[in-house]
Computed example of a mutant assay.
Amino acid sequence: MSETPQALPDDADLLEAWRGGDSAAGEALFARHYDQLERFFLNKVGPEHVGDLLQDTFTACVEARDRVEKGARFRSYLLSTAYNVFCGHLRRKYRRGADLDLDLVSVYDLDPGPSSVIAERQEQRLLLEGLRAISVNYQVVLELHYWEQLSTKEIAAVLGVPAGTVRSRLQRAREALEAAIGALSRSPAMLESTLTRLDDWAQHCAHAMGGRRG
């Protein structure tokens, strides 16, 4: 008689085991979420910075693991840490501190140039460039929504803002993205294809940036 496969431990169980001193549980947590964490950074910074930001995020998580609220989703906690690490990186690199308003400045404003992410289709490339052309906080909220499929409540937990703020930011971010794509597109047909299938192209981009490790 064959044995019933054991269910994999969920994030909460792994987190509790890690807090109890099980280093393997911590490694399993990070391995489970590595791809989405790498994806978070890929279209925002040059490839030379991704490894350092991943390491900084993991280090911050290790140092704060006992402060994660019981019942909180580890994925939201990890992405929130990544967001804070990313914001700190921008403020240090561009030496503008609190004067760097991430509601106004875009990744492209800070580092002009095309995305370093390889895109198979022109629609994907157009979407990636459009995301880099809107404000950093708009880019983040759209990528969390489209790529990570986070709910409004989950995005609010990641960014540390009320859910109502996320809803209004998502609406404004979509409008900004459509305008950016419209300005970047050289073909009416390409523009229509990208905008009418935005969810599909966003998922194609997410899959292209996942599982990149050899």
Rank of each mutant, 00 (worst) to 15 (best):
G164C: 09
L53Q: 00
V68D: 03
A133F: 12
C61N: 01
T57S: 13
G210H: 05
E154T: 01
H49A: 11
R95E: 10
R75M: 03
P112L: 07
C87S: 05
E192T: 08
C205H: 02
G21E: 13
G20R: 09
H145T: 00
L142H: 10
L128D: 13
A98G: 04
V141W: 02
S115L: 03
V166K: 04
Y34E: 09
P47I: 12
H145I: 02
L131A: 12
D35H: 11
I155D: 06
V107Y: 15
C205A: 11
G214V: 05
V166A: 03
I181V: 15
G211I: 04
C61M: 01
V140N: 04
F40I: 05
G88H: 01
L8H: 01
V141T: 08
D22I: 10
R67G: 00
D111S: 15
V85W: 07
E63F: 06
A60W: 08
F40K: 04
R73W: 01
L170G: 02
L126H: 13
Y146L: 10
P47V: 15
R19D: 04
A25H: 11
L128G: 06
R125Y: 05
L8Q: 14
A31C: 10
H207I: 10
S135I: 12
L29K: 04
L198R: 02
G51H: 07
L102G: 06
Q171C: 08
T59G: 07
F58T: 07
G26A: 10
L29E: 13
T81E: 11
L126G: 10
P114G: 01
L110E: 06
D200G: 06
C205V: 15
D52I: 08
L198G: 07
I134N: 02
V68Y: 01
V117H: 15
S23P: 09
A133N: 10
D109S: 11
C205K: 04
G160E: 14
R92S: 07
E143H: 11
R95A: 12
L90G: 02
A31V: 09
